[in-house]
């Protein structure tokens, strides 16, 4: 589960420090239980990406208390943060695939960082490649893929290690409706298996088709939790 209490976050802007640094988030408080699903909503610049960054352990909060999967992030050691990161899956808006690694190796990254046996890695990657419909593209490099294919590779990489926390930033942007629906079914299944999921999106039709608890941000503040 995740829990935030009065969480604030300021960016380290060049030339700005302390009180003069730009504020991205102010006094954010909410909790998501294990297996919970939340839509993360709000206009551009509302703070969704900053919140996802904090939850992905890409930064520490500059105020308040952030608990992820039972650990207080403000006090966690670097080694503890690394262990926690291995339990988180992230779908980035810009995919962040490694351009010089084939699709297979991009997807296998989280498993290899967990030092899973190579036989197991091979089986798991082939299974998920079948699921995302990219079995024939296993040896292709990301620049050789379409935007939709790249997004499916990014999704496969984020879920392959069955994370305890799943964070997705506009995960259906480059997908057609059928693929988007399949992804939402996958999220539902993962949620049923105990994965906590936060999905930031502007896709209103998707939200209507899959209604769930919503967290709405505006100007760095949480304006709706329900």
């Amino acid at each position: 589960m995740i829990r935030l209490r009065d969480v604030g976050f300021r960016y380290d802007a060049p030339g700005a420090s302390g009180a003069s640094a730009p504020i991205a988030l102010r006094q954010i408080s909410f909790a998501v239980p294990q297996g919970g699903f939340r839509w993360l909503l709000g206009p551009s610049g509302a703070g969704k990406s900053s919140l996802l960054r904090l939850l992905a352990l890409g930064a520490r909060p500059t105020a308040g208390t952030l608990e992820i999967l039972g650990s207080n992030i403000g006090h966690a050691s670097r080694a503890a943060l690394a262990r926690l990161r291995r339990r988180i899956g992230i779908v980035h808006q810009d995919f962040r695939l490694l351009p010089d690694l084939p699709v297979f190796d991009n997807i296998a990254l989280p498993l290899r960082l967990q030092r899973r046996p190579e036989d197991e890695v091979r089986d798991e990657v082939h299974a998920i490649l079948d699921w995302v419909g990219l079995a024939s593209r296993a040896t292709a490099l990301p620049p050789q893929l379409s935007g939709g294919e790249q997004q499916r590779v990014a999704i496969a990489r984020a879920v392959i290690h069955r994370p305890a926390l799943m964070l997705a930033d506009e995960p259906t942007n480059a997908l057609d409706e059928l693929q988007a629906n399949r992804l939402m079914e996958l999220f539902r299944d993962l949620s049923g298996l105990g994965t906590t999921i936060l999905v930031a999106t502007h896709n209103e039709s998707l939200i209507r088709r899959y209604p769930a608890h919503e967290l709405e941000l505006a100007q760095g503040r949480l304006v709706r939790d329900g």
């Binding site: 490694l98 990254l109 967990q114």
Partner: peptide
């Protein structure tokens, strides 16, 4: 830088 940041975000330790 990019691959290092990525695998760091996936849980690769400083030691690794």
């Amino acid at each position: 830088r990019m691959p290092i940041e990525l695998i760091h975000a996936m849980g690769a330790t400083d030691g690794y």
